[in-house]
């Protein structure tokens, strides 16, 4: 019977909840008589068994390692050992930074079928098909894996609802396979809580473009950002005019909004230079009078309207 194997993850001993989304993705293609096993590698894996014992999981493989450190070599050895022992048809992991380090390595070494950043899984005529985005989210691609007995996929986060509900899986304990590791954990560096203007560190940015027109209007948006609890950013012409410090400029000429999760672009047309600094942000809201401004092509939400009118109305809610 074909088995699906999910590789769940922990970081410094804390369970990574994105693994529940990987489990949900695995469940989406689990047949009635299929089996779903979830492996977790940790210094004390028993402490994490409860986290992955959700509905639909048949077995938890608790793998004891020497430490909680992330070792790509060790994860690859785990995947190899489990693939050998279990012969799963499908191995699933969350598309997080840890998986970036080990999943392609394991797939290339072991000759698996492979797809990363997958948004949907299904079988078509008995063949596994994985859907992912392409060309900077402008297309969808359906991939299949001809001739591959084992397929490894990593699942995009925030697509599948995390698997939940109580399950009663059997628990299998095992020791992590012996392997040479070439990396060693030294420590952690928390994101800096920089005072003052911090475009790279800010998780919420309201940004203004040339549509703002004059310097005193810029002040109005500083006030709005202050009320919203956001950092004010700007496109190049605003900083070039000396209306805002260069530390607020987002883009190739300027700063990268590296940690931003919500970016509201007001009156920003969305030139390539500007997009360079923000197009990766998960939720982009574009406000622009021109419905064809290129900023809309990367936005999750669009407001066709005047930035000043929207700003004045928005203030009423905060």
């Amino acid at each position: 019977m074909a088995e699906i194997l999910v590789i769940a993850e922990q970081r410094d001993g804390a369970f990574r909840s994105a693994s529940l989304e990987a489990i949900a993705a695995a469940k989406s293609v689990k047949g009635g008589d299929g089996k779903l096993a979830v492996a977790i590698v940790a210094a004390d894996p028993d402490a994490l068994v409860g986290d992955v014992s959700v509905e639909g999981v048949d077995e938890v493989i608790a793998i004891k390692a020497g430490s909680n450190d992330f070792q790509p070599d060790l994860m690859e050895a785990v995947v190899a050992a489990l693939a050998e022992a279990r012969q799963p048809a499908l191995i699933v992991a969350a598309h997080g930074v840890d998986a970036w380090s080990y999943a392609p390595v394991a797939a290339a070494k072991l000759g698996f079928g492979f797809a990363s950043d997958v948004q949907a899984l299904r079988y078509e005529d008995g063949e596994l098909v994985a859907t992912r985005a392409g060309y900077a989210e402008k297309v969808r691609v359906d991939l299949d894996f001809p001739g591959k007995e084992v397929v490894l996929v990593t699942i995009r986060t925030n697509v599948f609802d995390p698997a939940g509900g109580a399950g009663a899986p059997t628990v299998t304990a095992m020791d992590a396979p012996a392997c040479d590791v070439s990396t060693a954990h030294v420590g952690w560096k928390q994101p800096e809580d920089a005072g003052g203007i911090d475009i790279p560190g800010s998780d919420f940015i309201v940004s203004i473009g040339r549509g703002v027109g004059d310097e005193s209007k810029v002040e109005q948006f500083l006030e709005l950002a202050d009320q919203l609890g956001a950092t004010l950013g700007c496109s190049r012409p605003i900083a070039d005019n000396g209306w805002l410090p260069k530390a607020r400029q987002v883009g190739q000429s300027g700063q990268l909004a590296a940690n931003c999760r919500l970016y509201i672009a007001m009156g920003v047309s969305g030139s390539v230079q500007h997009q360079w600094g923000m197009k990766h942000v998960e939720t982009i809201v574009a406000v622009n009078t021109d419905p064809e401004a290129s900023i809309f092509s990367i936005a999750r939400y669009g407001v066709v309207g005047d930035m000043f009118e929207i700003a004045e109305e928005l203030e009423n809610h905060f």
């Binding site: 900083a239 070039d240 260069k246 400029q249 000429s253 300027g254």
Partner: peptide, 11 residues
């Protein structure tokens, strides 16, 4: 050394 500072003169 900063390209954004240099650009000011072009304006």
């Amino acid at each position: 050394p900063d390209k954004d500072v240099r650009r000011a003169v072009a304006f």
